[in-house]
């Protein structure tokens, strides 16, 4: 008798569980959502919206935080010279949401793509402790002037290994750094890169400074990028516009780290910028709204907006912009309320 009662109880439990399972998903279907298309049409749906372009969303990596973040290192003084100590940890096991709904195994310096933006002044001694916590061999190869053994090419750092790169910062300008282990294209495109900014002695004129690393991700490994962006997350600055002040100088440190495609470019709307290739010269080489950059080409852009409002910036290789490399500057008057 007891076993029979047990059986009945089990059957009742099972049917209750089945009923719960069957009824649970239906609640989500009743809500109607809307979204706006390119042409301004408003679409209503009872389903899910797939819209990385116009729908604000958050992923693990925060491009807003990255945009104006500069790592000056642990500063000390030796023999009257400034020494900057950094620690950079490589990993190749992180799966991050790189675009809403897309989870991809990125390879990272200090947990992000791009890696941290290092900043120093010309003549500083840089000491970068590199720890490889990945499962593959990695290095850091810095663009710039340094001794051969600090070049991060012939000194592979195996899993669990360490290496300290030590060299004098210079010349003043913008220099990318990246892993230099074969297969090189893979080690770069998976995310092992970042920017080193070297200020001239005495620094540059005050400005609203920001970093844009132009990059792409090949999420299906077919040798072509599926997603493009300034700072990794496609369309991010389009639905999270970058707020800047009218009349104030904006300085963008920009580097092109896109692989596979021979060129990338940077077009600014409603304005022109002074462009300093590699940031090594005090005099701008161009006054333009469009520069074309090959792999690891980089430079400094400076501009001021006269009129408040929303201004697009994007790759004028529009395939890239339609796959995520586009954003908006929101120009506001000083003291004006938000969104003016």
């Amino acid at each position: 008798m007891a076993s029979r009662r047990l059986l009945m109880a089990a059957a009742m439990l099972a049917s209750a569980a089945a009923a719960a399972l069957l009824s649970a998903p239906s609640d989500a279907q009743t809500e109607r959502r809307t979204f706006v298309t390119h042409s301004g049409a408003v679409i209503e749906t009872h389903g899910d919206v797939l819209d990385p372009m116009y729908t604000p969303s958050t992923v693990e990596f925060d491009p807003d935080e990255f945009l104006r973040n500069f790592e000056y290192g642990r500063v000390s003084e030796e023999d009257g010279r400034t020494v900057r100590d950094y620690t950079i940890v490589a990993r190749d096991d992180l799966v991050q949401e790189v675009s809403p709904g897309v989870f991809f195994n990125v390879w990272t310096f200090n947990g992000t793509v791009p890696g941290p933006t290092l900043r120093a002044t010309e003549g500083d001694l840089l000491r970068i402790l590199f720890i490889n916590n990945g499962s593959k061999t990695h290095t850091i190869h810095f663009h710039g002037v340094h001794p051969a053994e600090m070049d991060g090419v012939f000194e592979p750092v195996g899993p669990g290994g360490r290496f300290t790169y030590e060299f004098e910062a210079g010349p003043a300008g913008v220099h990318p750094y990246h892993c230099h282990v074969m297969p090189l294209e893979e080690h770069i495109v998976r995310g092992l890169y970042g920017m080193l900014i070297v200020d001239p002695p005495g620094g540059r004129a005050p400005a609203d400074e920001m970093v844009m690393v132009l990059n792409g991700l090949d999420t299906d490994f077919d040798g072509e990028n599926n997603l493009y962006a300034a700072n990794t997350v496609p369309f991010y600055y389009q639905h999270h516009p970058i707020r800047i002040e009218a009349g104030k100088t904006v300085r963008v440190y920009v580097a092109n780290m896109v692989e596979f495609d021979p060129v990338n470019n940077f077009h600014l709307h409603g304005n022109l910028y002074r462009y300093y290739p590699t940031g090594t010269d005090a005099v701008p080489a161009f006054y333009t709204d469009m520069v074309t950059m090959s792999q690891t080409e980089r430079g400094i852009m400076e501009f001021e907006y006269e009129h408040p409002g929303r201004y697009l910036f994007h790759a004028h290789k529009v395939e890239f912009s339609e796959k995520g490399w586009s954003g908006i500057f929101l120009v506001e008057r000083q003291g004006a309320p938000d969104g003016a």
Partner: peptide, 21 residues
């Protein structure tokens, strides 16, 4: 699977997926 993006001619487009992704 979860559907993440839709594109036309390899250019990402806003889209809706029904009943859900």
């Amino acid at each position: 699977v979860e559907i993440a993006h839709a594109d036309v001619n390899d250019r990402i487009q806003p889209a809706a997926v029904e009943p859900d992704r």
